[in-house]
Design a binder for these strands. Structure first.
Length: 346
DNA sequence: AACGACATCAACCGCTCTGAC
DNA sequence: TGTCAGAGCGGTTGATGTCGT
C-alpha cells in the first residue's frame, strides 16, 4: 500500500503557473507568510495547486532576490568544487551561492557544466586511446593495480600529512585514470576508502609532529599538490562554541592525475576561487544538514560516465562520514566527526 | 519556410527526514 | 516508542526554445 497523496490529484492544476497564480501566491505569502503549512496554503488563497507545487514556485521563482541564469565563472568553480566535495547536494551548494536555488544549480549542472567537463574528458580519452595500445593498457592496468594495492597498504600506515606520504608511489599514472574510471572503479574506490581510513585513524602521535593547533577542531594544512584550492572546500566544520573553520583534508591526494581538464576547470583561477570561498563555512549547521539529509542513495552511481567520478570521489567520503555520524546521534559536531577528518580534539 | 535534433529549464514525482502527538 | 503528516530534497520529465539543415 502506497503513501497517501499529499493532495487531491484530480482537483489540482498542473503545469506552468499563470501570472495570476503567481500574484496570488506572492501577495499572500508576503502578507501572511506560509503559515508553516504549505499543504493548507493553496486552499486558503483559492489556488488549485498542490501545496508542494506552491512551495516550489515560491522558493524557486517568487521569493525575493532570486537570480536566474548568467552563472559566472566564479560560480561555476564553486559549483564544481562543491560537487566534487559533497556530490549532488544541491541545496547545500545553493546555500553557498546567494540568490541561486537548488533547482537552478541542478539544471545548470546537468545541462551545461557536466557536459562541459565530459566533453573535455572524452577528448582526452580519445587522445590517450590513440597513444596506448590495448596490450599496453592491459599491462598498465596490471601494473597499476599492483601499485594500487601496495600504495593502499602504505597509505594505511602513513599519515597523509607526512613527508613520506607525498613521496608515496602514486597508484595513478598518466593513463590510469581512464583505466580506473572505466574498468577499475572498485580499486579506485578502495584506494579512496583506504586514504580516508588513513586519515581517520592516523590522528594520534603523528599529529604531535605538526604545528600546534590553536582551535578545538583543526586539521593540519596539506601539501597542496594538485588541488591547491579545492581541497580546502571539502568540508568545513566549526567547533562547538566558536564557529572556527578548519582546514579539511586533502581527499584528492593520490589523484594527481585526475582528469587534467577537470583539474583545469576547477583549479583555474584558483586565486579567484579562494577569494570566492573566503568565509565559506559550512559550519555545524551545514554539516548537520548534510548528515541529517544524508540518504543512502548517494552511494549509487549516476548513469553517465560522469557518475563514475561522483561515485569515486563523493560516495566514500560522505557515506563513510554519515556512517560515522550514525554512531553519534545528535546535532553536535563531536569527537567522532572531528576524528574522522583527522582533526584533533583538545 | 519547414522540419528535426538538441538544449534548456520549470515543474512534477517519489523518496527520506523531521517533529508532533 | 511508534505512527503520521508535512517539509525538503534530488532525480526525472516534458514543454518550449534554439539551432542547423
Amino acid at each position: 500500500m502506497g503513501r497517501a497523496p499529499c493532495c487531491d490529484k484530480a482537483n489540482v492544476k498542473k503545469g506552468p503557473w499563470s501570472p495570476e497564480e503567481d500574484a496570488k501566491l506572492k501577495a499572500y505569502i508576503e502578507h501572511h507568510g506560509t503559515g508553516g503549512n504549505w499543504i493548507a496554503l493553496p486552499q486558503k488563497i483559492g489556488l488549485k495547486r498542490c501545496g508542494k507545487s506552491c512551495r516550489l514556485r515560491w522558493l524557486n521563482y517568487l521569493r525575493p532576490n532570486i537570480k536566474h541564469g548568467g552563472f559566472s565563472e566564479e560560480e561555476d568553480n564553486i559549483i564544481c568544487s562543491l560537487y566534487v566535495s559533497i556530490g549532488s547536494r544541491w541545496s547545500i551548494i545553493a546555500a553557498q551561492l546567494p540568490g541561486r536555488t537548488d533547482n537552478d544549480i541542478k539544471n545548470y549542472w546537468n545541462t551545461r557544466l557536466k557536459k562541459k567537463l565530459l566533453g573535455k574528458q572524452r577528448k582526452e580519452q580519445q587522445i590517450q586511446a590513440r597513444r596506448v595500445s590495448n596490450n599496453q593498457q592491459k599491462q598498465d592496468v596490471k601494473r597499476e593495480t599492483e601499485n594500487l594495492i601496495a600504495a593502499s597498504e602504505v597509505i594505511n600506515q602513513v599519515p597523509y600529512w607526512s613527508a613520506e606520504y607525498s613521496s608515496l608511489p602514486l597508484p595513478v599514472t598518466d593513463v590510469s585514470f581512464q583505466h580506473y574510471s572505466l574498468n577499475n572503479q572498485t580499486s579506485l574506490r578502495n584506494l579512496m576508502v583506504n586514504k580516508l581510513e588513513g586519515i581517520r585513524f592516523s590522528n594520534d602521535h603523528h599529529q604531535q609532529q605538526q604545528q600546534p593547533y590553536t582551535n578545538a577542531c583543526e586539521i593540519p594544512s596539506l601539501p597542496n599538490q594538485v588541488f591547491p584550492t579545492m581541497v580546502n572546500h571539502v568540508a568545513v566544520v566549526s567547533d562547538e562554541n566558536n564557529s572556527v573553520p578548519y582546514q579539511p583534508s586533502n581527499i584528492f591526494q593520490g589523484f594527481e592525475n585526475f582528469p587534467s581538464d577537470f583539474c583545469e576547470l576547477v583549479c583555474v583561477n584558483s586565486q579567484e576561487m579562494d577569494r570566492s570561498m573566503e568565509g565559506f563555512n559550512y559550519g555545524r549547521e551545514s554539516m548537520d544538514v548534510m548528515s541529517n539529509g544524508g540518504s543512502t542513495n548517494t552511494t549509487s552511481t549516476e548513469s553517465t560516465s560522469w557518475g563514475d567520478m561522483n561515485s569515486l570521489v563523493y560516495s566514500p567520503l560522505v557515506s563513510d562520514y554519515e556512517g560515522c555520524r550514525q554512531g553519534n546521534p545528535g546535532n553536535v559536531v563531536g569527537f567522532e566527526e572531528c576524528n574522522y577528518f583527522g582533526m584533533q580534539m583538545q
